[in-house]
Design a protein around this nucleic acid. Structure first.
Lengths: 204, 204
DNA sequence: TGTACATCAGTGAACGCGCGTTCACTGATGTAC
DNA sequence: TGTACATCAGTGAACGCGCGTTCACTGATGTAC
């Protein structure tokens, strides 16, 4: 049974004690919607309810309000991206620099193929105090750890690993933001070259 | 006479033949609004009209619709930023690398102090065909020219100037986007260091 | 010089719409005795 | 085993709101004769 279809498709309600499953269904539907709209403005309570196949009021059993829904979606997407990057770094090739490069590729690939999901990652959660670190910092840490492993394996960096990670991560993000503002095929083709140059720049 | 005040302040209408002046007033009011909201969602026809001190219908004499208004605002802000960067590069210090660094500083400073204006720069204009270059490319070109001047003055780069410009610009943009998602004082204090590292990375 | 008319800058009221949120509810499934 | 009741998952209708856009208009300033 598919829930992604519009109106006519009836949803079978969850069984007793399984009400929490709807939370995941809502997030999945919102995620699907985000990939079509590629813009969080279109992510409305009513729109998500339509995409999930439920009544708008049903959202409120699982999220306090629209802001909480977007926060939940952000956490959902951050986790998806983190898993992808970690998997990309698990390659059996022993060279830690190659693995860091693979992680960078996974990051850029996610941004290129899921622009809507990517954009939401940089939202500041609404409930969090201004002092709390943005969730994207988690992603930055992944790159930092990879560079530290490369250093531990004897590769020399031109900057301390934490600073090099900031350069690599911000350049990748900036590049993808630029690509999203101007997604030409020519630009997409140059992405691998960009990644290679970026890694080469921080290596000694 | 100030137009920035709310309702009670009456606006004196422009004289015959000077109707075009309202266009600028609208863009200025929208720009002011953008710096308060730091979010383009809040930029509504009615909101801009309120900030300008005119009736919503009056916007339509100068902009076809809301999308055209946002396009006009984008062009307005791009020009402001370009002027700042060009002025920063006009320093009397002869060293072209110092001048490039100053331009980069001006760029980051604009992003840090005008987050709302900065964010709108990466909007894709609505009327433009998908093949048209995004207006931010203009800014990228400024950095490329600076690096080419440095090369012409005998400084060696680790990458061709056009590729180095992409790295420098995207890293700066990514860094500022990260800062906006997570604007801590600690992060702001490290900005000069980041800029220095970035310039050093592309130099041989 | 007067006067009829055109043009200009801008308005006020109304339209239909989709939104976030609330509230009393329904019907199925579990539990206590 | 039956039965009264509690709890669960989820609904339908309604609310008030601000939005983009349209339309016929107003009053001041210019121009033709």
């Amino acid at each position: 049974v598919s829930n992604q279809a519009a109106g006519s498709m009836a949803r079978t309600r969850n069984r007793w004690g399984e009400g929490e499953r709807l939370r995941t269904e809502i997030l999945d539907a919102a995620s699907r919607l985000l990939s079509e709209l590629d813009d969080e403005d279109g992510l409305t309570i009513r729109g998500v309810a339509r995409a999930t196949g439920i009544a708008p009021a049903s959202i409120y059993s699982h999220f306090a309000d629209r802001a909480a829904l977007l926060d939940g979606l952000l956490a959902h997407e951050i986790q998806r991206l983190r898993e992808r990057i970690e998997r990309a770094g698990d390659g059996d090739g022993a060279d830690p620099v190659d693995r860091a490069r693979e992680q960078l590729r996974a990051y850029c690939d996610f941004a290129a193929t899921h622009p809507g999901h990517y954009r939401i990652l940089f939202r500041r959660p609404s409930e969090a105090p201004p002092s709390a670190p943005s969730p994207v910092i988690e992603i930055l840490s992944l790159f930092q750890r990879s560079l530290e492993r490369a250093e531990a394996a004897g590769r020399r960096l031109r900057l301390p690993a934490d600073r090099a990670a900031v350069v690599v991560f911000t350049a990748a993000h900036g590049r993808m933001a630029l690509y999203q503002a101007n997604p030409t095929e020519r630009s997409a083709n140059k992405l691998p070259q960009f990644i290679d140059e970026l890694v080469a720049l921080v290596l000694d």
